[in-house]
Design a protein around this nucleic acid. Sequence first.
DNA 1: ACGTTATATAACAATTAGGTTATACAGGAA
DNA 2: TTCCTGTATAACCTAATTGTTATATAACGT
Lengths: 105, 105
Amino acid sequence: MYTAEELSKVLKVLGDPTRLTMLKQMEAGEQCACSFVDCFDISQPAISRHLKMLRQAGLLLERRDKQWIHYRLNETSPFYGIVVDLLDKIETIDVSCDCDTECAI
Amino acid sequence: MYTAEELSKVLKVLGDPTRLTMLKQMEAGEQCACSFVDCFDISQPAISRHLKMLRQAGLLLERRDKQWIHYRLNETSPFYGIVVDLLDKIETIDVSCDCDTECAI
DNA sequence: ACGTTATATAACAATTAGGTTATACAGGAA
DNA sequence: TTCCTGTATAACCTAATTGTTATATAACGT
């Protein structure tokens, strides 16, 4: 159970097509930040800021590996269930934009 | 199944505490617009615009009765299920702000 | 017709959101 | 060290959001 205040905060973060698509991709597994940069038609700093908003909402966890940072859904977030329920209602995106650098390992 | 685009649009509309609370109240049944005016600490035009956004998102239906307009959740919206699922996760609000005019009939 | 009530719209101000470019920082490789 | 790559932050711009007050519209009551 959540208050309308806290739930609306999370929904606001989810209410952006870029962020929602990022989450959808992470549902399939951990994603390197650079793969988002390749995937979306916006600048690297814009991607970085979207990731920051998702992190600050507690929806993401990160793992650093060398210079790459891999993000994944935070399964311990109190909103994880809600997020996954929503993501499962989104058509799978044909990701033709895999990270083309080493990080894809 | 929805696209990330269309779902994010709806989530953006839901991502506001006033609108989310309004929806929560409508989940309990039809609400007169004037009851929202009494209930929230914002001006009548602000309420009116929030209702318009919910209407434009297809989430509400309205019924005019004399000079009062009663709003209710649109059960035929393609997003109705999602909306109800989310509303059910919100703590019930102690509505000490019923419409104090005749419309409450 | 006239006043009153309920709701919607217009015009405006302040804040937030989301993009950009430039720059800083972190880590690996030569 | 120096250079390169990946990521984050700063500064800025524009557009959207959310509130306000003033006004218009719709419907009722006298």
